[in-house]
Amino acid sequence: MGGQDREAERDAIIAALVPVARGVAATFGPVCEVVLHDYRRPEKSVVAVAGSVTGRVAGGAMSEIGMRVLARGDEAGDELNYVTRTGAGQLLKSSTMVLRDSAGTVFGALCVNVDVGAIRQAHALLGALAGEGEGHGAGDPVTAAAPVTTFGNDLDSVVEAVLDAHRVGRPQPWAGLDRAGRLDFFRSLDDHGVFAVRRSVEQVAARLGISRASAYSYLSQARAATDPTSKGDDQ
Rank of each mutant, 00 (worst) to 15 (best):
F28W: 14
L99Q: 11
R41G: 00
E132Q: 14
L70R: 04
A48M: 05
S200Y: 04
V18D: 01
N81W: 08
D234F: 11
C32P: 03
Q203T: 14
G73I: 12
A26E: 10
R6W: 02
V204I: 09
V20N: 05
G135S: 10
E7P: 00
T229Y: 07
S63P: 12
L155A: 05
H136E: 08
A25C: 12
Q221Y: 02
L163S: 05
A130F: 00
A26G: 12
N81I: 01
A26N: 02
D191N: 11
S102L: 06
A15M: 06
A205S: 13
R198S: 13
D74A: 09
P173E: 10
D156T: 13
A124F: 02
E43N: 06
S220I: 02
Q4T: 12
A165D: 15
L125D: 13
D78P: 13
V31W: 10
L189E: 08
E33H: 10
A15W: 08
H123K: 07
G135C: 11
V34F: 05
A118W: 03
D234L: 15
S157L: 08
D227V: 00
L125V: 09
Y39W: 14
R207I: 03
I13N: 03
V168G: 00
S102K: 10
I13D: 03
G59N: 11
Q121W: 09
V20W: 08
R182A: 07
S220H: 14
T149E: 12
A161F: 08
W174N: 02
V98W: 11
G51F: 08
V159I: 15
S200N: 03
S45L: 00
R85Q: 15
P141Q: 09
V142G: 06
D5V: 06
A109C: 14
I13Y: 03
S188W: 00
A161Q: 08
G117N: 01
H37P: 02
L129K: 06
D233G: 00
P171K: 12
R207P: 05
A76G: 01
A213N: 10
T229M: 09
T27V: 06
G66F: 11
G117E: 09
Y218D: 01
Q4Y: 03
L177W: 10
I65M: 15
Y218N: 02
